[in-house]
Design a protein around this nucleic acid. Structure first.
Lengths: 114, 114
DNA sequence: GTGTAACTTAGCCAAATGGCTCAGTATTTC
DNA sequence: GAAATACTGAGCCATTTGGCTAAGTTACAC
């Protein structure tokens, strides 16, 4: 039983906050600057930045600074991490592993064709 | 944008800990007592109990005490909460809502036939 | 009816989280 | 080149988290 640190810890932790989930939702529509992303929130910018850092550190987004503007983009692969875990769990209680295998294969095919 | 408390906060928070994920994994194979669940962990029982309480409060498990033994069972519906959120996110960046609608319908059908 | 097993309650503690302000840096814009 | 814009860094603070121990409580076994 994996007791040591897992990437899943951070991946799920990131989703446990409504601000961060909202940011991911917004980024699903396309890249955005820090200012744009922060606008809807009644929160000081440094506080908001902590969420951005968290999302970046846990692999949910990538950011890049051009001039004085930092642009954030969604890292879609993180969703696969979760879907894989979900499929794994379901396969446990369905008492079979074929579903998981089929799922992982599907993901792999999608990425190969990107 | 839903800024107030969401059930998702707790749902994801519960998954952010390896002990709790392991418990869910074990419960996927069938119900178990607190003692059974705690056995693999090098942790005092009261500490472990906090994780159980957390999982119960966030709807991931149900527990019932019979005699001096408390038995825990997996609450499978919680997985659907996450799958729905995932489908919602994917539908955002795929720029359409039909996928989500299809998924929600599927879930509904499954539950109706249980 | 005493002892043991299986939790449970209470409360302590260090570290992490999620907010804040205030001051700083680096680009643009005028 | 002075001012405004868009972050960024440092550091404070309250609350939450996730561990602990020590002392109950409640059933079951003998």
């Amino acid at each position: 039983m994996a007791q040591y640190f897992s990437k899943l810890d951070g991946t799920f932790q990131a989703l446990a906050d409504p601000t961060r989930r909202a940011v991911l939702g917004r980024l699903g529509k396309g890249p955005a600057s820090i200012g744009e992303l922060a606008a809807p929130f009644d929160m000081a910018l440094p506080s908001f930045m902590k969420h951005i850092h968290h999302l970046e550190k846990t692999g949910w987004i990538r950011t890049r600074k051009t001039g004085r503007v930092r642009t954030c983009t969604l890292e879609r692969k993180s969703f696969d991490v979760i879907e894989t875990w979900l499929a794994e769990q379901r396969s446990i209680w369905e008492g079979r592993t074929d579903r998981l295998e089929r799922f992982v294969t599907t993901i792999h095919d999608k990425e190969a064709s990107e």
